[in-house]
């Protein structure tokens, strides 16, 4: 499921780069709605960070 989430996130960013703002939204969901610590929420969003890194790699390569 993580791989699928990462791939669809990359697809969203390749469609319109504005989707990159979700990088901030995902950890905030855990922190705000599930009362998790910010660091654990950030760790849970590692797949999104990797996706954004891959997207920026594509942009730099282009």
């Amino acid at each position: 499921m993580l791989v699928a989430a990462g791939l669809t996130f990359i697809a969203a960013m390749l469609s319109k780069e504005g989707a990159v703002t979700a990088l901030a939204v995902f950890p905030l969901i855990g922190w705000t709605f599930f009362q998790k610590s910010f660091s654990s929420s950030l760790k849970s969003s590692a797949w999104a960070i990797i996706s954004v890194a891959l997207f920026f790699f594509c942009v730099a390569w282009c």
Partner: peptide, 19 residues
């Protein structure tokens, strides 16, 4: 924008399952 939302939507399912 439509494609972005289409691919953006299902992201919330794994996010809420993981945190």
């Amino acid at each position: 924008e439509i494609l972005s939302l289409f691919f953006y939507n299902p992201q919330f399912i794994p996010v809420c399952e993981m945190v």
